[in-house]
C-alpha cells in the first residue's frame, strides 16, 4: 500500500528514478562549471604577470641613460655659464650616481621614488616588475 516510487518495479516509476539521478548529476555538473567560471573570472581580475627575463640591455640602458643625462646637463651649464669643465665633471659624477640608482631601482634593490613616497597611502595598485626585457638567449 505504501508504495515508494524508488523501490517500485522497473519500467514505469523505475525510469523516473534514473531521470532523477541524471538530473542530479547534471545539476552538479552545472554547479561545478559555474563555480569554475566564477573562480576563473576572479583569478583573471587579480592575475599577476611576471616575466622571467632579466637582461643586460636593460641594465646598460638604465646606466648609460643616467650618465648621458648628467653629461648633457653639465655640458649645457658649462656652455651657458662658461664654467667649463667644472659643471661637466660634477654632473657627470651625479649622472653616474643616477645611473647606479636607475640600475638598482630597475633590479628592485631600491624602492622607486614614487613608491617610497606612496608608502603612507594605501596602495590600490600593484606595480608590475620591470624585469621584462630581452629574453636570455
Amino acid at each position: 500500500m505504501v508504495e515508494r516510487p524508488t523501490d517500485a518495479s522497473p519500467g514505469g516509476p523505475g525510469s523516473s528514478k534514473d531521470d532523477e539521478e541524471e538530473l542530479a548529476r547534471r545539476l552538479e555538473r552545472l554547479g561545478e562549471s559555474l563555480e569554475t567560471r566564477r573562480a576563473a573570472e576572479e583569478a583573471e581580475n587579480r592575475k599577476g604577470r611576471s616575466s622571467g627575463f632579466a637582461q643586460a640591455t636593460k641594465v646598460a640602458s638604465e646606466f648609460v641613460a643616467g650618465v648621458i643625462v648628467g653629461a648633457g646637463i653639465g655640458w649645457g651649464i658649462d656652455k651657458a655659464a662658461g664654467t667649463s669643465p667644472w659643471a661637466l665633471i660634477v654632473f657627470l659624477l651625479l649622472g653616474f650616481a643616477a645611473g647606479v640608482l636607475n640600475v638598482l631601482r630597475s633590479e628592485g634593490v631600491v624602492a622607486d621614488a614614487g613608491a617610497r613616497l606612496r608608502e603612507a597611502e594605501p596602495k590600490e595598485t600593484r606595480r608590475p616588475d620591470r624585469d621584462g626585457d630581452r629574453p636570455a638567449p
Binding site: 640591455t57 646598460a60 641613460a65
Partner: peptide
C-alpha cells in the same frame, strides 16, 4: 634631489635606447 632629477630625466633616454638598441 639632483640625482633623482637626473634619474627622472634619464627615463626617456633609457626607454628609447633600450628599444632602439634591441
Amino acid at each position: 634631489t639632483m640625482i633623482e632629477v637626473i634619474s627622472f630625466l634619464s627615463r626617456p633616454i633609457s626607454l628609447s635606447v633600450r628599444l632602439f638598441a634591441n
